[in-house]
Amino acid sequence: MSLVVVFDLALTYIFRENFGTNPDHARNSLTNCGIRQPEYGDRRIHYMNTRKRGINTLINIMSRFGRNLETESKITHNERLEFLGDAVVEFLTSIHLFHLFPNLEEGGLATYRAAIVQNQHLAVLAEKLGLDQFMLYAHGSDLCHDFELRHAMANCFEALMGAIFLDSGIEEADKVLSSTLFKGESVLHNIWVHYPSHPIQEQEPQGDRKWIKSFPILTVSHALS
């Protein structure tokens, strides 16, 4: 699979395999705009199966036409890349937090990491990159709801990180994540990128292997390893 295809898949949240008329258009209209309501009867019954989301939301979603391009992969969505990218984002975030807060216990680090990697925040990062303008998806009525759309954007950002990792490795993925996290905030970006060494590393910048010969128990352990 070429790298072009990999990045194409990263932007493919829900992809249609048949390229005919979209069957969801009528359902979108009914779901978001409803039908003309009669003036008689119990209004609770008439409105039971309709959601008044508004014509603006409908037009916004219906105008998001994806590119109908086939790919070489038989998998027409980004779920595998999303799985990989989720691990990449958590791994990189863990490294930076571990070094930036050497005295913070595990629970605090986990809380900070959760705040960064949660879908709501990843959707903000996707919006910073303008990924919603390049995503490929079918016009499902569920995407008319802002929550579902932002969840799709978060998944797309994770998939993009997975694609960058496959293309250029963990260092490039780190650069993209860091620059997106603190876009327009140079001071915070500099702190995040140039994190200090761990206290043990600062204490022993050349490593602590030199102490092996000084302690018999370490010498035996080293020989066994």
Rank of each mutant, 00 (worst) to 15 (best):
Y112D: 02
A115N: 11
C144N: 10
V124N: 01
L122G: 06
L136C: 08
M153V: 01
Q118S: 06
H194E: 15
L143P: 15
Y137I: 07
G108S: 04
Q133R: 14
Y112V: 00
N155Y: 04
D132H: 15
I170N: 13
D142Y: 14
Q120L: 05
H189E: 15
K128F: 13
A154C: 02
V176G: 08
F157Y: 13
K128G: 08
H139S: 08
I116N: 01
H145W: 13
V124K: 04
C144H: 06
G162M: 03
N190P: 13
N155T: 03
T111L: 10
S197I: 12
C144M: 11
F165A: 08
G162D: 01
P199M: 15
A163E: 07
I170H: 11
H139M: 12
L181Y: 04
R113G: 12
A159C: 05
L109D: 00
E158I: 03
E172W: 03
I116A: 02
V176W: 08
F165M: 12
V176N: 09
I164L: 14
N190R: 07
E148P: 01
G162N: 02
G169F: 09
A138I: 08
I170V: 10
L129H: 01
M135H: 00
L181F: 07
P196V: 00
A138R: 10
E148C: 02
H198Q: 05
L125C: 07
H151F: 00
A173K: 10
G162C: 04
K183D: 09
W192E: 13
A110E: 11
I164V: 15
A159D: 03
P199D: 14
G169S: 07
N190M: 10
C144E: 08
T180N: 06
G184M: 05
E171A: 15
E185L: 12
E172H: 09
P196F: 00
M153T: 01
N119Q: 13
L136Q: 06
N190A: 10
Y137L: 14
A123M: 10
C144S: 11
F165E: 01
A126E: 04
L166A: 14
P196I: 00
A173F: 06
W192K: 14
F157A: 04
H198T: 04
A138G: 14
C156M: 01
Q120N: 11
C144W: 02
V176R: 09
F157Q: 04
Q118R: 07
L129M: 05
A152L: 04
L129F: 05
R113V: 06
E127P: 00
V176Q: 12
E158G: 02
N119C: 12
P199E: 15
D142E: 15
T111C: 06
T111M: 07
L125M: 07
F182Y: 03
D167I: 07
A154M: 03
A114D: 11
G140T: 08
L166M: 15
A123T: 13
R113I: 09
E185T: 07
E185M: 12
A126I: 05
C156E: 00
A126P: 03
A152Q: 01
A123C: 11
G108K: 01
D142R: 15
Q118H: 04
A173D: 10
H145Y: 14
D167L: 08
A152F: 02
D174F: 05
D146W: 01
Q133F: 07
E185Y: 09
L136F: 06
T180I: 06
H194D: 14
I116Q: 05
P199N: 14
L131C: 04
H139E: 09
A115K: 11
S186K: 13
